[in-house]
Amino acid sequence: MNRIKTALLLTCLTLLLVAMGNAIGGQSGMILALFIAGVTNFLSYWHSDRIILKMYKAREVSATEYPALYGMIYRLAQNADMPMPKVYIIPSASPNAFATGRNPQNAAVTATEGIMQLLSEEELEGVMAHELAHVQNRDTLIATIAATFAGAIAVLGNMLQWSALFGSSSNNDDEEGDGLLGGLAMAFIAPLAATLIQMAVSRSREYQADTTGARICGKPQALASALRKLQLGVQAVPMKEAPPTTSHLFIVNPLAGTAALRLFSTHPPMEERISRLEAMASGQDA
């Protein structure tokens, strides 16, 4: 269901982009905006992992330095039939983790010092399985596609605003006035709708990673317990240095201490994530 939901959301972004292109008066503006957004996100897709790891001062570690963590990720990668990813540690007391990389062959799994102190071995295993699930499910690619369409729609929105304002200077009748208002309404509403859809895609992928990760480690209850602890841990020690633009990468929002509307959240409600995992655990026990 999560995969179907993601496909439907991406379809909505596509239709919204087409509608914006038609509103401008043809396909040329749509193609230009899509090209600009595509180039930007293509570069991000290939280089964002190194940029993000450097941003958080993440340090690659070996099996000698962190044998328990390294061995755990190795076993999980074997369970998922994936290559062994690189392992990084972030020097932060805030408990969190994320994965990055464009595919399983170029992946990195990152944990903060805080998460290793907070969670038990089984709970940490559930978190690492969740992160490997993001890599296995190609969530970096999906997020890039969603960002490409949302970015193109934002560019088209700006173009439509200028087009509507420019057109109004030489036409003052009621029909042109209605067209101006309609164009301006779409110029503001469409980018907002695209952002909401992009956030919904992110939330859907989190649900999918929870499910896949629980299957990889075979311990959905441990992952549920980890999420419960992480929610409280991040509220107590938020990662204040984390830019909002990267919050979707983490297993829990690193800025969870701040209030946000659910529609604009990159993560699903924690209680719903935990409930789904506990339902999986109950199914295993039955």
Rank of each mutant, 00 (worst) to 15 (best):
M1W: 08
T6Y: 07
L8N: 09
L8V: 15
L9K: 11
T11Q: 09
C12S: 15
L15D: 10
L17T: 12
N22T: 02
A33I: 10
V39M: 14
V39R: 09
N41E: 14
F42G: 10
Y45D: 12
W46V: 14
H47Q: 11
H47I: 02
R50N: 15
T64K: 15
Y66N: 07
P67S: 08
I73N: 03
M82D: 08
M82R: 05
V87Y: 04
I89G: 03
I89V: 15
P91C: 06
A93H: 11
F98R: 01
N106L: 04
N106H: 15
N106E: 15
A107R: 04
A107W: 09
I115W: 00
M116S: 00
Q117G: 14
S120I: 07
E121S: 10
E121A: 11
E122I: 01
E122G: 01
E123F: 08
E125S: 15
G126C: 08
M128F: 09
A129K: 01
H130A: 00
H134D: 14
Q136V: 00
R138S: 03
R138N: 14
I142V: 14
A143F: 08
A146W: 03
Q161K: 13
S168H: 09
S168N: 04
G179T: 07
G179C: 02
L181W: 10
G182L: 04
L184G: 06
A185K: 08
I189N: 04
P191A: 07
P191W: 07
P191I: 10
L192C: 06
A193H: 01
L196G: 05
A200W: 05
A200D: 13
S202D: 03
R205M: 11
Q208W: 01
R215I: 11
C217D: 13
C217S: 15
G218R: 08
G218T: 01
L223C: 10
S225P: 03
A226I: 01
Q231V: 00
L232K: 06
L232N: 07
Q235E: 13
Q235Y: 06
Q235V: 03
P238D: 08
M239F: 13
M239P: 02
T246V: 09
L249A: 01
F250P: 01
I251Q: 08
R262V: 02
F264N: 05
P269G: 04
E272Q: 09
R273T: 05
R273P: 07
S282I: 05
S282L: 10
G283R: 09
Q284N: 06
